[in-house]
Design a protein around this nucleic acid. Structure first.
Lengths: 172, 172, 172, 172
DNA sequence: GATGAATGAGCTTTCATTCAT
DNA sequence: TATGAATGAAAGCTCATTCAT
């Protein structure tokens, strides 16, 4: 469908050029239509990118949720390392989406910026909640304080991995 | 000096709006001159931002170096936590520069992108080299492999801190 | 019938936005169809508005003629004041059409402009003819010159009434 | 000065094509510059036309005021006919401005519409006030009611003259 | 009769840049 | 040093129109 192709092209262009740098012309050309035709599907550039953001975040979340459920049964060490591995795999496989989303955090459209930061917070809370529950079930002997500190640790490592992936490597 | 004020304004605008979003007009207005006057000091927008990038990276490096030297004498634990603290302090104090530099990594000007990724690599190498040296001096009993893994650990945590700082917090 | 509804919608839109401001989309939406469907009934925008103009002018003329015939029997004073009253009633009742027609006089489509000015002239001539005939029949003692001047007078007042109605009052 | 030339060109174009029909390109071409250059003098199309409106209304008012003062000394009959003559002369001499202003009454920009109707009201009030004063001074024997009715009469004739001028004649 | 999808032409506007002063 | 005036290029967007279905 043209509409879906447009969203994919938007993601690719946003990733490569940022919001201001991505142009309706380039996106249209990538899909094989003329710029004016985009307006049949989306009200304007902002609307197109809002939908693109939704797609990216939904994809990210479903990806993370899937991994988490797959690994719930394992021991702690395996759980952690598999989660990190899945972060790495997701962001490596969908480089476009990750780059787009990093760029979007600094989007000039405050709604988008807000939506993404809100998503990041929700995601973090969800992750912390899940880990809290799983760890305390497997290790009833650990104090909540200790678990909390473990999770912070994990989050730091995850973020570091993400950041390292995003910029020190080949994601250009 | 007007030229320095222009660079500062450029950093601020780049940080807030990205390369494409930052305009010569806005930068000029911030300095209190007219857009045409910028061209007396810089050949073009790209040149202005190249200088801005240089200033940011130099500042970052001198800041990191200073902390490192201050903390060299301490024990390992203190060294690590003070380094992390100084990363935090630097990026919190110079939010503008950090935001500009995150934005610049995705700059549409490949020279700038290249320069920054090159800097990040050099910086990382430098940091790894320093830590390697310091740690092996203080703990001759540790195998190089072990040290290397410790350092990776530290880098991950540092990156995670940086990323968390940049986006999950208030850097808007 | 859809075609008639389109003409009415066209009149309303032309009245409110002028020829350039009225869009096929807005007209279609008002009728509850899609823009493309208009082209089943009319060749293009110009054709649609030409038909709208015809409807308005025919309506105006039949309205004026009716009043004239109703009042022919009365004395001069009553005739004049009733005619003025009927001008007022017509333009107040069919504000849309009047506004559309004022706008159309300045239409960028010279055919329409020409048609309307031609109509106004024909209408004026008809009115003058009718009045001439009626007055000279009722007042054989009046010289033609005197009658002519009386009629001019009446026309001026009628125009003034029309103009005042159109713009100094509530026709917004 | 370019700015003044722009306003004159705007008036001419607005008169000929209406607000939507007048384009920045045509206006620019008429002045001998490129469309982009207009934005050095005016923020946008709306701002340009707001200034054009101001110029037209100010010109109209000063023109009317001048005539009125010139004729104050004469007897009533002369006063009235000279005023009508000056309305005629003004609108014939500055056809452009008159056409622009008739078009603007139906402007899609509600601010402009409002400003003009407000002006028309103020102008009418001013005229009524002036006439009231002058007539009652010259003819103390007339009852206010009678004077008021005389003035209405005059206004009607003036409007009719204006309307007739605007549309039944050659103002195309 | 009606419409989904597409487009060409043209619009307003922005912006980096130039250049004479 | 600084700027007023101008511009080319390109952006986002609108709209009348077409055409296969």
């Amino acid at each position: 469908m043209t509409k879906d192709k447009l969203i994919q092209a938007a993601i690719a262009n946003f990733a490569e050029f940022g919001y201001q740098g991505a142009t309706m012309s380039k996106i249209a050309k990538e899909v094989g239509i003329k710029p004016a035709s985009i307006y049949y599907f989306f009200d304007n550039k902002e609307a197109l990118f809002k939908e693109a953001v939704k797609v990216i975040l939904a994809h990210h979340f479903s990806s993370m949720k899937k991994t988490y459920h797959l690994q719930k049964e394992e021991n702690l060490h395996t759980l952690f390392s598999e989660l990190l591995r899945s972060i790495l795999v997701h962001h490596t496989t969908f480089q476009n989406e990750t780059k787009a989303y990093v760029t979007m955090v600094n989007s000039p459209i405050s709604n988008i910026k807000r939506e993404i930061t809100a998503y990041l917070q929700r995601y973090n809370q969800w992750l912390v909640g899940q880990l809290m529950h799983t760890i305390s079930a497997k290790h009833p002997e650990l104090k909540e304080e200790k678990i909390s500190s473990l999770i912070d640790y994990f989050i730091f490592i995850g973020n570091g991995l993400f950041w390292g992936l995003s910029f020190t490597k080949k994601m250009n």
